[in-house]
């Protein structure tokens, strides 16, 4: 069986859960995965052992203190054997995987949502169509979260490689996000508001429900463009973020094609809209035809009593 190289997804100094899903994807591809952990402290790799993974390589280097695509790609590339490269379809991992693929003269297939032998399927045209491609030989592949089941954890067989790359960019300053809320790109549950919320102050009703569920709050472009209190970082859609949560709750959002582009692959979609003909209902698993004013208080109290 040929080897594949999983680039572990890291988040705030630890291994992100999606890494376990990458292991399942690697096995679905008929490969035997090795996990590579980019880190400044090799102890992090101790948590990157999974059933079906023979070894874990901690690539330890100063360059991993801040994200710099060139040095990350160089260091990960030199520490990794040949094989299919597998990364999570997050903005940073798609970026670094693109550079590693180019270093090796390989092609890259991004945002894979299904694997059948060596055939990989991804959305194209913002999800208005799907494309299946066949690999012949090695390639790099990024995999969307919440598609493959997580491989079970087991003891990691870690070897440490000291490796650094030339850093080509310098971070001058980090501007912390004003809100301490979870970012939509990282959330498993998202509740988003649109122009139908009427005013930015009314987003507080969404925040209350987000707090109950541990969810992130998102927005449509109309909300972001109309109200300066709603930052672009919250925008979901074609010119915002593409999200793939387990649950997406759209409130006062009509469901324009460009909004759908960013969220239609969510596992479950709930829509709250006063217009029974709003296009969002065609994509909703559970639709509520009502105003948010009459719906959100009921939803909040029902969820609160269930979660407590």
């Amino acid at each position: 069986m040929s080897e594949s190289i999983i680039i572990a997804e890291t988040n705030k100094g630890s291994i992100a859960p999606v890494t376990a899903e990458l292991v399942s994807a690697a096995i679905a591809l008929g490969t035997s995965p090795i996990v590579v952990v980019p880190c400044t402290d090799a102890a992090m790799a101790d948590n990157a052992g999974y059933d079906g993974v023979s070894r874990t390589i901690a690539v330890k280097g100063d360059c991993f203190a801040n994200y710099d695509a060139a040095s990350w790609a160089a260091a990960i590339d030199s520490a990794s054997p040949s094989g299919i490269i597998i990364a999570a379809a997050t903005p940073q991992s798609k970026d670094v995987a693109s550079r590693i693929a180019a270093r090796r003269g390989l092609s890259i297939v991004q945002d894979v949502v299904a694997i059948d032998g060596m055939n990989l399927t991804s959305p194209i045209y913002s999800g208005k169509a799907m494309q299946t491609v066949a690999l012949s030989g090695d390639a790099a592949v990024s995999i969307r979260a919440n598609i493959f089941g997580a491989a079970a954890s087991s003891a990691a067989n870690v070897s440490v490689v000291d490796q650094s790359g030339d850093v080509a960019t310098a971070v001058q300053e980090i501007i912390a996000r004003a809100s301490t809320r979870l970012d939509v790109a990282e959330a498993n549950i998202i509740i988003s508001g649109g122009r139908g919320m009427g005013s930015p102050d009314n987003f507080s009703h969404l925040e209350k429900i987000a707090d109950v569920l541990g969810a992130a709050v998102g927005a449509s472009r109309a909300a972001v463009d109309t109200w300066e209190q709603i930052p672009h970082s919250m925008q979901v859609g074609q010119t915002g973020k593409t999200v793939n949560p387990n649950l997406y709750i759209a409130v006062g959002i009509s469901g324009a094609i460009q909004h759908l582009a960013g969220m239609r692959s969510s596992k479950y979609i709930v829509a709250v809209n006063k217009d029974a003909d709003a296009p969002i209902f065609a994509h909703a698993d559970y639709g509520i035809v009502a105003t948010w004013e009459e719906t959100l208080p009921v939803l909040e109290s029902a969820l609160s009593s269930m979660m407590s």
């Binding site: 092609s107 194209i124 799907m130 494309q131 066949a134 012949s136 509520i288 035809v289 009502a290 009921v298």
Partner: peptide, 23 residues
């Protein structure tokens, strides 16, 4: 080295459940 096998419409989503009223 990556060849297109097919392009297809997105899988149709089964019709969801729709309710009237906030309750």
């Amino acid at each position: 080295s990556v060849t297109i096998v097919s392009q297809t419409p997105p899988p149709a989503k089964p019709a969801g459940k729709k309710y009237e009223g906030g309750s």
